[in-house]
């Protein structure tokens, strides 16, 4: 029953340092309570008899390491999560983006892509998808493979459909996917404007300029200095008057870039860059 203290703090530090030197993934500045819980979770899930074996496997088995990364990073996401957020995007942000000849949007830390598909659906309905590019990035290549397939569990569709309606969607949500067995395959038309690539917010740099950057429920896993670093990266990657969208419990308020941004009036976690 007791699952705590299986991987100690010292052992966690060892793993972090192994992983950085062998694979180049830097988890040093992640929030430790959550990271440790994820480490213990996979340690238990994969039934390692000892920490030494766990460590050996991570260090020497690249295929296992890819599973490891997927399991210790949190990949829980949903379509139209927080419908009021999407409603605000639709009503206040998309009309501004619509005035641009080309719309560039970055979904940073997009995981399996549910939010990217949500955005594509909204753009399609606003007749903007044609002139949009949706950059979808995550540090984890295997979740991006799933994003490219556009296949999600059918069991989720009821929830997503409710979210979609609450966000102001006016179609039958089911028109966007074909159900087969227990899976839902999304319309390939939605994928045409997605550009999918790995990108690590800890170590990689800015790669383009965007009018809208979404990074929701990623910063909560970072410590404060790393949060500030990621926000500086977004700031560098955002056009003047561009929009930055964070998760429901994330805030720009105490970061060094905050003075350049103004939150939208309705208190959704969307900020506009004002200088």
């Amino acid at each position: 029953m007791l699952e705590t203290q299986m991987v100690s703090d010292g052992e966690m530090e060892l793993l972090i340092s192994d992983i950085l030197s062998i694979y180049g993934y830097d988890f040093t500045d992640y929030s430790k309570a959550s990271l440790k819980r994820r480490l213990n979770r996979i340690y238990m899930l994969d039934k390692f008899p000892s920490f030494a074996e766990f460590r050996y496997r991570i260090k020497n088995d690249a295929a296992y390491f890819s599973r490891f990364v997927e399991e210790i990073t949190v990949n829980v996401t949903e379509m139209f999560r927080d419908p009021s957020f999407y409603k605000t995007l639709k009503e206040e942000v998309l009309p501004v983006l619509a005035t641009k000849p080309l719309i560039r949007i970055w979904h940073a830390g997009c995981s399996t892509g549910e939010e990217v598909y949500s955005m594509a659906i909204m753009l399609e309905e606003a007749n903007l998808l044609q002139k949009s590019l949706l950059y979808a990035t995550d540090l984890n290549p295997s979740v991006l493979e799933r994003l490219k397939k556009g296949i999600f569990p059918l069991s989720q569709m009821k929830q997503y459909s409710e979210n979609y309606i609450l966000s102001g969607g006016r179609n039958e949500f089911s028109k966007y996917y074909r159900a087969k067995y227990d899976l839902a395959k999304f319309d390939e038309n939605l994928q045409k404007k997605m550009i999918v690539s790995t990108h690590n917010l800890v170590s990689d740099r800015s790669f383009n300029e965007f009018q809208l950057i979404l990074c929701r429920n990623v910063l909560i896993y970072f410590d404060k200095p790393l949060q500030d670093k990621a926000l500086a990266l977004f700031d560098e990657s955002l056009e003047n008057l561009g929009f930055l969208a964070l998760g429901a419990k994330e805030n720009l308020k105490f970061s060094p870039v905050a003075r350049k941004y103004k939150q939208l009036a309705n208190k959704e976690k969307i900020w506009r860059k004002t200088r």
Partner: peptide
């Protein structure tokens, strides 16, 4: 604790949030 997030406590006695399973 906010709805729909797990609430964790860090060594420095601050909160952190997590949206995992």
């Amino acid at each position: 604790a906010p709805a729909d997030y797990h609430l964790l406590i860090e060594k420095d006695c601050t909160f952190s949030l997590d949206v995992s399973e």
